[in-house]
Design a protein around this nucleic acid. Structure first.
Lengths: 153, 153
DNA sequence: CTAAAACCTCAACCAAAGTGGAGGTCAAGG
DNA sequence: CCTTGACCTCCACTTTGGTTGAGGTTTTAG
């Protein structure tokens, strides 16, 4: 067995442990670190060591991702915390509130679309100018070019 | 001026015209064609020609995309239509009904997440085992690996 | 007829959010 | 001591939904 299996009362974690405890792959932790979302230091053998609160950070990242927040935005939000500290309850309040607003907005858009879809089922219209599905107008406005991201399935 | 500016009563359209009328870029039309979502034939000079109903197909594609349906699934749905014909009102009824179910599901997931987020704002818990945000369990189940897509902003 | 605009193909590139492998190092158990 | 598993870096590849550009052809307006 590896050295990461049985260490009670640890105050620092290896990547493998963080991976197992947080449920994300080791490669993903590397990736998050490269993107600045989490931090680590190195031991004498150049291996990553994490403080236990990285688990909370990863948890927050995953929740925000499920809410549809792109990693970049999550990183920016986390980076705004003084000292890059792990969010306190108060920090989490602010973060989750802003993400909730985002989520509310996304839900509202989708709901409006659904309603129009319901109205239009079977109408076969889709006519430019008259069909609401064809007139994104206000809430469903133009979406510019570039890659478009979808909701996690 | 190009040759596509002033042709009244056309029954076939050039890419540029389809692009202008449907609101998507020429490159996107090429892309959709490569993916089998739309079809065209060629004139003597090897230029694409479309029947007018490609506009309806593109309209349907865009609506489905806004509902969060991936292009591949849209293509499969359109391909199921006999003769690859342009959807009739009845076809559209079936298509939009299936996409609406998808949309309903997505909205339901996001709504549950929002509610949990609301419950948890400020609680600072995020504790494994107890926080609903940390327990995707049933409705918010595991999301496998691979690229994740987000909702169109 | 000529020049400009629109078209063609093919290939590379973009972003996001990772995954996977090659080749090499480190640590711990037996 | 030595094997094994965990770790390291770097690079390439994946998918989705396109965009951009190079280099060449066609069409059309003047």
């Amino acid at each position: 067995m590896g050295y990461s299996a049985c260490r009670p009362e640890q105050r620092e974690l290896s990547v493998g442990e963080v991976a197992r405890r947080s449920g994300v792959a080791v490669s993903t932790l590397h990736f998050y670190e490269a993107k600045g979302l989490i931090k680590s230091w190195r031991n004498a053998g150049n291996q990553r060591r994490y403080s236990r609160d990285v688990l909370r950070r990863v948890a927050i990242i995953k929740v925000a991702q499920r809410a549809g927040i792109p990693l970049k935005a999550i990183g920016e939000a986390l980076a705004l915390l003084p000292d890059g500290r792990t969010p306190t309850a108060e920090d989490w309040r602010r973060l989750s509130a802003s993400w909730k607003a985002d989520l509310d907005d996304r839900i509202a858009r989708l709901s409006r679309l659904r309603d129009h879809l319901g109205d239009c089922i079977g109408c076969g219209c889709l006519s430019i100018d008259t069909c609401p599905l064809r007139n994104p107008g206000d809430e469903l406005g133009e979406q510019g070019p570039g890659p478009r991201l979808l909701e996690p399935s």
